[in-house]
């Protein structure tokens, strides 16, 4: 589905990614792990066309996307939940959700409003509120729901539970498990290793702008040295 091959990305003259490669297959949940500043978010931004890739290749369902503007990347079926609860505070909750639904023409089995509100029922009570009237957790749920309403073939979450209360995190992890059961492909960045181990099929570990390890959940669970060295666990 998603194939990232040897990409290199720069911020000005400083190189952020050094030949990053990864794959996400249909129906898989894949994680990008690593400490802060290791290039995880830059990888996501490069995939989404928000940061220019200097070298390498990114394909999505065999279509090259690394040279496309971000809105065309999104239209290929990549839905991003960006870092930092980036909802639209001046739109109502319903508008935030519906704006996500606008560009999904032609997708098979699109998510409906009822379906996404069933996964995150808390938002159903807040549909008329403005985005800036929601709590942090509700804003994050809204960001996930907004991305879901694009009916993405691949849902990408960048630090979706960062800074949230444990109970709210639990709701979000539950929502993602429901999506996985539905066959949704997901690429996720997060620091909550326990939750990720339960959810994900495969993992990539990044260090200083490069992938230093990749493997399945069982392999990661057994590799204490890797977890201690690269993930600080």
């Amino acid at each position: 589905m998603l194939k990232v091959e040897q990409i290199e990305t720069f911020y000005g003259s400083s190189q952020a990614l050094f030949g990053v490669s990864l794959k996400v297959r249909a129906g898989e949940v894949v994680t990008l792990l690593g400490r802060n500043g290791m290039g995880k978010s830059t990888t996501i931004k490069s995939i989404m066309g928000l940061t220019q890739v200097t070298r390498g290749r990114i394909t999505f369902n065999d279509i090259e996307i690394h040279h496309l503007p971000s809105y065309q990347v999104a239209r290929q079926g990549l839905g991003l939940v960006p870092e930092g609860r980036q909802i639209f505070p001046n739109l109502t909750v319903l508008e935030n959700i519906m704006v996500g639904a606008a560009n999904r023409g032609g997708r098979e089995e699109p998510y409906t409003l009822d379906e996404v509100l069933e996964i995150f029922p808390r938002l159903a009570e807040r549909l008329k509120n403005y985005g800036n009237q929601l709590s942090g957790g509700e804003q994050q749920m809204l960001a996930v729901v907004r991305a879901l309403m694009t009916t993405p073939k691949l849902l990408i979450l960048d630090e979706a539970t960062e800074g949230l209360a444990p109970l709210v995190r639990k709701e979000i992890w539950y929502g993602l498990s429901v999506l996985k059961a539905r066959g949704q492909s997901i690429l996720v960045i997060d620091k909550n290793l326990d939750a990720l181990m339960k959810l994900a099929d495969r993992h990539y570990v990044m260090e200083r702008g490069a992938v230093v390890w990749s493997g399945e959940t069982d392999e990661l669970a057994d590799n204490e040295e890797l977890k201690a060295r690269y993930l600080g666990v």
Partner: peptide, 24 residues
């Protein structure tokens, strides 16, 4: 309208709107 939602969304973040698939 949807058009207005996109315009209002752009006021907050154009990049966010682009990542939802809108040619802002």
């Amino acid at each position: 309208s949807r058009f207005g939602m996109v315009i209002r969304g752009c006021r907050e973040s154009e990049k966010r709107m682009q990542s939802l698939g809108f040619p802002t």
